[in-house]
Simulated assay, not measured.
Amino acid sequence: MIKKEDISFILADDHPMLLKGLHDELTLHNYAIIGQATNGMQALELILKLKPTIAFLDIDMPLLTGFEVVRMAKDKGTSTKFIILSYHKEIDYITKAKALQLNGYLLKEDSFFEIERCIDAVLNGEIYFSSSFDSFAIENASDELKKLKLLTPSEITILKLIAQGNTNTELSETLGVSVRTVEKHRSNIVHKLEIEGGTNAVINWTLKHKDVIVNL
């Protein structure tokens, strides 16, 4: 079993009071805090430099969001485990967390008992979502990811390019296929993802799920 003194933490939140509160609670329970950050860029730098066991990240931070920090740190091959601590309970955020394969997702309203349960689970290789989450929301988030797995590599490429703001003509030129082929792919995407709405439905969907699409 890993001893508390062997577990190192980095904390990142742009709210000083919340950052201090988490720091004080962890310190009181004999956990080692080796770095703190008030923006995403600073958090990323500390994670890559200090290589903590676990990084607690807020989602809505200046410069880089918590999700962006996780993605960029993982791209660098970090072994740090990531726990998001946020107010967001929406399915979109749960889906993003699952797509990024986050180790834990807690709510800022959770007790320290819940935080410790999450830490223990993460250290044991488990994925932990706050017990405050509605199980229906977590299931729905999983369903969204299952739909994305139905897409072909070509459809995923087109989805990523749409998320970058490319038109059908630009997609056609980039991929070296006809506009008609692009339109066919878009139609398949709409069907598989069960996207409802008018002409801009796919664009709106990709913008809403951009953080998920990036990780496909």
Rank of each mutant, 00 (worst) to 15 (best):
D110K: 12
I91D: 06
N103Q: 15
L159V: 13
S111Y: 02
P153A: 06
Y105V: 11
A137G: 11
K51C: 08
T80V: 08
G165E: 05
A121M: 07
E45Q: 13
F129W: 12
A137P: 11
R71W: 15
T78N: 09
I158E: 00
F113H: 13
M61Q: 04
E144C: 05
D58W: 00
A121Q: 12
L107V: 09
H88I: 07
T95E: 09
D60C: 07
G77R: 09
I127K: 14
P52F: 09
A43E: 00
L150S: 15
A121N: 13
I162H: 04
T65M: 04
K51M: 09
S131I: 13
V69I: 05
S130F: 07
L63T: 12
S135V: 13
Y93D: 15
V69N: 04
V122L: 01
E155S: 07
K108E: 10
C118H: 03
Y87E: 09
E155K: 03
E139Q: 15
N166P: 03
L150W: 07
K96N: 04
S132V: 07
D120L: 12
S79R: 15
G165N: 10
I59A: 02
E45M: 04
Y128E: 09
A121I: 06
L63M: 15
I84S: 00
K160V: 12
Y93N: 12
I91Y: 03
L123C: 07
K149C: 10
L63S: 08
Y128T: 10
L150M: 14
T152F: 12
M61Y: 07
I54A: 03
T78K: 04
I94V: 15
K74S: 01
P62I: 07
N166Q: 13
M61L: 09
N166Y: 15
S79M: 15
Q101P: 03
T78R: 04
I138N: 07
A163L: 01
Q164S: 07
K81A: 14
A121W: 06
G66S: 05
G125W: 14
L57A: 03
E155D: 06
G104I: 07
D134M: 11
V69D: 04
K149M: 09
V69P: 00
I47Y: 09
L106P: 02
I47V: 14
K74W: 04
L145D: 11
E144M: 11
L63V: 15
F133L: 13
F67D: 00
I162V: 13
E90H: 14
A73L: 06
S131G: 14
S132A: 11
D110R: 10
I84V: 11
D110I: 02
I54E: 02
L161E: 03
E116K: 06
A99Q: 02
M61K: 03
M61C: 06
K160N: 11
A73Q: 04
L102A: 08
K81P: 10
P153R: 11
L57Y: 02
S132E: 10
P153H: 06
Q42Y: 00
I84R: 00
S130N: 11
L63H: 10
E68M: 01
T78P: 10
F133W: 10
K149H: 14
A121G: 11
G165K: 08
L107P: 00
E126A: 13
A43Y: 03
